[in-house]
Amino acid sequence: MARCFIPVGWQQAGHLALVGFALLATLATTRAGPATQAGMTAIPAGTYRPLIRSQDEPAEISVAPFWLDIRPVTNAEYLAFVQAHPRWRRSQVSPLFADSGYLSDWAGDLELGPSAPVGAPVVRVSWFAARAYARAIDKRLPTIAEWERAAAAGFTQSEGAKEPGFPAQVLAWFTQPTPQPLPAAGSGRPNYFGARDLLTLVWEWVDDFNTAMVTGESRGDSGLDRNLFCGAGAAGIRDPSDFAGFMRAGFRSSVRASYSVPNLGFRCAQSP
């Protein structure tokens, strides 16, 4: 059975103490749900500050506590999923739910090959496929609010933007070409909540990516095209310096649910 986890990160002694500390710190504030969840980390209740919001939208949205996979889903895990669910194999998937690039870096229908190492994050999966994977193990995709809440943390502080050097490290990722093949999922440094690779490995699907409404035309985005979007006329920007946040918002608004993108993977979430 496919699973969202195999706690790779935990085997790395150098980070163990840090993860453990972050987990303890977060669990202390999380009352609901099981005390531990293999391969997942508890994200305590908190707030999400949307980067782009309409006039009526509150500046802060509260996010209930949830579990988040420590790292993105790997090729090996996704392979186990398609073995159990033939309709999600490359040869059988409906073109409605995954475009022609779906798993195209795999050597075959049930064979990973050199471009898709076992431990690397699975990419070229559509939103429909990612959601099907999550549902198959009673999980779900995180929402934008949840994902951004988890990713807003730095390595040592709950607010990455205030941690010296953290924003620069995130930005550095954008200057690097995507390595081929991708490095192993979970090899990145854990953040304050114990989640790894949120910002510096691959893009990740979120459940409600289609709520991001940035139009393709950059000059139009200050006022969002009124004819294309109903009611989105007065959008405001939280932090114009959040380059990575803009990139994510733009990315989310540019993809469709059937798209398979070379560096777009996912991780799962679960409610307590």
Partner: peptide, 24 residues
Amino acid sequence: VQDLAMLLGVKYKQDARGQFAHSN
């Protein structure tokens, strides 16, 4: 509703007043 919106490429988001911003 979400599935259909995804298949049609329709973006939508409910605001605090309960109105939906959405693709036309």
